[in-house]
Design a protein around this nucleic acid. Structure first.
Lengths: 228, 228
DNA sequence: ATACTATACATTGCATGCAAATATAAAATA
DNA sequence: TATTTTATATTTGCATGCAATGTATAGTAT
């Protein structure tokens, strides 16, 4: 018998309490509400979220730890992972490498509808740029890169890229990027979309690589002063 | 005060029960004792491992699920992840891509001692080949590739490569590889080591790519009949 | 005053019991 | 006999209490 339950309308996530706790906490960490290095005691979380008890919370913390978003030391508790500049540089190297893999594969395998979705987002991103809405620009930008990777139709690649992006997202948002670089980045994106449409994988790979290298150089400087 | 506890002598792993359960179960899955698709009920595990109760076991299962080694469906339990050929192909594409990234980086950054360790393992692998000890050859082979990746000194890269290798390890061991291909693979490894010693990153990248492509073609065929 | 010790407090690890959900078996009906 | 329905048993999700570990505080000795 097909006793299909309606999708729940709970505030944050369906399914078990463990899963919804994971979703909520992940959001808090990735968005930066919980700062790198900050302690996450079980008690403090339980006070915030009434409909949660220790067992599912502890299961959630284990999951977040194996995702790399928190450090979990036995008998000492959970702390939001604090990444050194070396870690972030490493992650960026990996991210660029993954996009290099994706570039060639995506040009070979992406479908027309998927490409259309990217183009649509690209136009939305241009609007965000014109309105100088950096936060919105940043979010759409992230989505576009994820979709380019997804176009490779490689489940493992998409999963790893997503996870690794989440790790360093809170470090990549450069709140006060100067207009000049921003404008250049938009231009580069035009070329990126065009290479994708032409399915020129090798060109796309080089464009993405250059795009990220330049962008990261700038963001890196801004971040270096913060981390010091 | 430095109240340093002695390393425990428990059978499998130190630390919390959760962690030791993760280690034990991971070993069982990766080694193939627990077969893809097989159910892992809490009760069956608790019967095998007396010094374990439900809470740490359930936490361990959550961790293994987020590592991708088991599927965990709410209210239905845990099953060893069963990968389709498409999944395995995808994972191999990623693994080859990660080694491509690592090849260039490793040639630039690997230290002399690290290189020595690889050479030593290489010689051990030759012995295994001469003795026609395929299992030992396979294990050393895996270690060498991991160490080449580790030579890039990129924590994220090493972590991802390790995890992804574990996912598909049980599918990659081709029990009845023919001698001809095996001999060729050994020759290719000679060249790989040599390119690494010369720190010729681009050459190493191509050698690794070719090595894996050929090897996977063979293993893939053997596997295809099994999975059908 | 500093360093060390002992004690009280807080936090995490684990075991267990109960409730909810699912799977299995038995009974009833077509 | 095949199929649906009902009842039973099993299994998972969650809450909670106790034990073990770690942290902070107060006190003592040097």
């Amino acid at each position: 018998m097909e006793n299909k339950t309606l999708p729940e309308v709970t505030s944050t996530a369906r399914g078990t309490r463990t899963l919804s706790a994971v979703t909520r906490l992940r959001e808090l960490i990735v968005s930066g509400v919980l700062k790198p290095g900050q302690r996450i005691s079980e008690r403090s979380v339980l006070e915030e979220h009434q409909d949660l008890s220790r067992t599912p919370l502890r299961e959630a913390l284990k999951i977040l730890a194996s995702e790399g978003l928190i450090d979990l030391t036995p008998n000492r508790g959970a702390f939001v992972t604090r990444l050194s500049m070396k870690h972030i540089d490493s992650a960026m190297e990996v991210l660029i490498g993954l996009e290099s893999i994706a570039a060639v594969a995506s040009c070979a395998r992406i479908t027309a509808p998927e490409m259309e979705e990217i183009k649509t987002l690209h136009h939305q991103m241009l609007v965000s740029f014109q309105q100088q809405d950096l936060m919105s620009y940043f979010q759409i930008n992230q989505q576009i890169h994820q979709l380019i990777v997804d176009g490779a139709h490689n489940e493992a690649l998409s999963r790893i890229y997503r996870a690794e992006s989440l790790h360093i997202r809170r470090y990549r948002y450069a709140g006060n990027i100067e207009h000049a670089r921003w404008e250049q980045a938009v231009t580069e994106h035009e070329q990126i979309i065009e290479a994708l449409c032409r399915r020129d994988g090798l060109l796309l790979r080089e464009l993405l690589r250059a795009h990220h290298s330049k962008g990261w150089d700038v963001t890196r400087e801004l971040l270096a002063t913060e981390l010091k």
